[in-house]
Design a protein around this nucleic acid. Structure first.
Length: 289
DNA sequence: CACTTGACCTGTCCGC
DNA sequence: TGCGGACAGGTCAAGT
């Protein structure tokens, strides 16, 4: 699910909804979904105040005033949904939330925020929330390896090209998906950006001419930025912090558009498998090299 | 080292 | 209607 734009959208929602609230209690229904010792939970979570929300790569970080943080990875199907205790749901009271009454059968963790609740729903149970000392976060393996944020102002075209230098023999799509090259791109935006740059997903990095790599830099930034503006991509599961869908997929050029005409040349978009992932591309305007 | 496969899980869809 | 298999936005470990 959630790639950079989706996690960023959740982050912005939580900025408005939960900063300043106190955690009154937490309840977990699946061990891997919430990883924290009983003692840490009691000492550093219950009673703590939420002071700040951050995002790095596809990871969400909720900083508490106890020098601890909730570190969250939504993986494929995770949702973080805020709901006031007095919100009315169910028959006769529809709203525009994609999720209905909570908790539901995908709810793995519930945080009681004293008058509201934060639900961690995760159909496939791949996602997780860890309670960690804030200062330890940069030391976890993933953050030690992860590449730069592609939307940071100081991330240049030159930096982008340099990040691919050590991946010359990889397929370009595999390199884009590799979080140690650059952070935040997943299967949707890899396909979309490669279409924009007119690069076949199975091209070896070394066979991509530098001007195309420069184009790819622009396209990565473009699709991520556009998707943030559209509130991310909702295929099935993804919702923002208020339970609402994102609309990027109605703007997608190739992703989930197999057998439809390419918006640029009219050829039929194909779906194949590259780097172990379902891959959409236009066979006419995305030639190898 | 690069690449593939399997694992982690549940749910849905498609063909028989 | 039931059943088996493939597949789904991500990462990590192990094998080739």
């Amino acid at each position: 699910m959630p790639e950079l734009p989706e996690v960023e959208t959740v982050k912005r929602g939580l900025d408005k909804l939960i900063v300043g609230l106190k955690v009154k209690n937490v309840e977990s229904f699946w061990p891997k979904s919430f990883q924290a010792s009983k003692n840490d939970t009691k000492e550093f979570l219950v009673g703590a105040k939420i002071i700040q929300i951050r995002r790095r790569a596809k990871v969400l970080i909720i900083d508490l005033d106890t020098k601890y943080s909730l570190v969250i990875h939504l993986k494929m199907t995770g949702q973080i949904v805020f709901r006031s205790d007095n919100a009315v749901f169910g028959a006769g009271h529809p709203n525009d939330s994609l999720v209905g009454k909570l908790p539901d059968r995908s709810t793995r963790v519930v945080f009681d925020l004293d008058g509201a609740k934060l639900f961690f729903n995760d159909q496939r149970k791949f996602g997780w929330i860890k309670l960690l000392p804030t200062i330890e976060i940069p030391n976890i393996d993933f953050f030690k390896r992860v590449g730069p944020e592609p939307l940071n102002k100081d991330f240049s075209e030159k930096d982008f090209i340099k990040r691919f230098e050590r991946k010359q023999n990889s397929l370009i799509k595999a390199a884009l998906l590799d979080q140690s090259v650059i952070a935040g791109v997943g299967n949707i935006y890899a396909d979309e950006a490669l279409w924009g740059a007119k690069i076949h997903p199975a091209t070896r990095v070394k066979d991509v001419p530098i001007p195309r790599l420069k184009k790819l830099f622009n396209e990565v930034q473009f699709v991520l930025q556009l998707s943030i503006e559209k509130g991310g991509s909702t295929d099935k599961n993804y919702v923002d912090a208020e339970g609402k869908k994102g609309s990027y997929l109605s703007f997608a050029r190739v992703f989930r558009r197999e057998n439809q005409p390419c918006p640029r040349c009219g050829s039929t978009i194909e779906k194949t498998r590259v780097a172990g992932r379902g891959t959409h591309f236009c066979p006419k305007c995305q030639k190898i090299a």
